[in-house]
Design a binder for these strands. Sequence first.
DNA 1: TATTGTTATACTCTATAACTATA
DNA 2: TATAGTTATAGAGTATAACAATA
Lengths: 143, 143
Amino acid sequence: MTTPADATDSFEADAPGQGDELVDLLVQTSFDVIAIVTRVGAEHDMSLTLVRMLGILRDRTLKAAELADYLGLERSTVSGLIDRAERRGFVVREAHSADGRSVQLRLTDAGQAMAKRGADEIAVRMAPLLERVPPRLRELLAD
Amino acid sequence: MTTPADATDSFEADAPGQGDELVDLLVQTSFDVIAIVTRVGAEHDMSLTLVRMLGILRDRTLKAAELADYLGLERSTVSGLIDRAERRGFVVREAHSADGRSVQLRLTDAGQAMAKRGADEIAVRMAPLLERVPPRLRELLAD
DNA sequence: TATTGTTATACTCTATAACTATA
DNA sequence: TATAGTTATAGAGTATAACAATA
C-alpha cells in the first residue's frame, strides 16, 4: 500500500482480498473440528494435548524429544504430559535400546483402547459436519 | 456390534471404518490451521483466545455473556479475557442501553487494526496450504 | 561439548463457587 | 427468583532456566 495507484494490488501477499472467504471458512471449520476433539477429550478427562498424544503414539513408538517435535512443545512441557499420561496408565516409559539418555514411549493396552475409543467418537461427532459436504466434493477430497 | 453378522455394519455410527481417512485429514488439517493462528497470535503476544475474540468482535458488538457463548467459555473466564484486552487498548466496555447489568463490548481503533492485521497475516501464512488445493477443488469449496 | 530428559519456577488460561447489582 | 458480570481460588498447560546423565 506504499504505491497508491497500483493495479496489481490484489495480488500482493500483504493486501489480501480475493481468497479471504475461503480462508475464513477454513479457519472457522478448523475451530469447529478442534472444538469437537476438545469436547470428546473432556468427556474422558483428557486435554486436547493428551488426545493428540494418544493419536500420535497410536501407530508409532517415539522418544520424548520426538513427541515434543510432533506436538510443537518444549521437552519440559512434554515431560509433565508424559507424567500425567503414565499416572493414568495410558503410556509407559521404556529404556531406549541404543541411547541411554532417551526414553521410548509406548501406549499400554489401556492407552490403545482409549486412543481407539476417542478416534471413533470423534468420527461419530464429525459425521454431521461431513454430511453437509456434497458427495461429489467428498470424493474429490479423498485423493 | 451387538448383532454379530450384520451386513450393514459399515453404516453404523459406532462402527466407523470407511470415512476415517477423511476424518483424519480434516482433523490434521485443522490442527495445522490452528497452529498457524496460534503462531500469528503469539508474534503479537496474543493468545489463541484473544485472536478469536478480536475476530468475533470485528464485525459485531456483543455483550460479555454473548461473547462467552461464541467462545464456548464461562463468563468468569471471559471477564478476565476482557480485562487483559481492555488493558491493552483493544476493546472497551460500554454501558448497555437497555440492560443495566450488561456491558457492551466494542473494539477500539487499535483493536480493529490488530484484528485486520492478524487476519491478513493468517491469510498470508495459509496461502501455501491453500496452494496445495487443486484450483478445481478450490472453486467447489467456495460455494 | 552437545543432547536427552527432569525439575523448579512463573505466567496464562480455564472452571467452580460465592458475591453484587440489576431485571 | 433469575440473569449479568466480577472476584477469589485452584488446577492444568505452557515456557525458561538450571541441572544430571549420557553421547
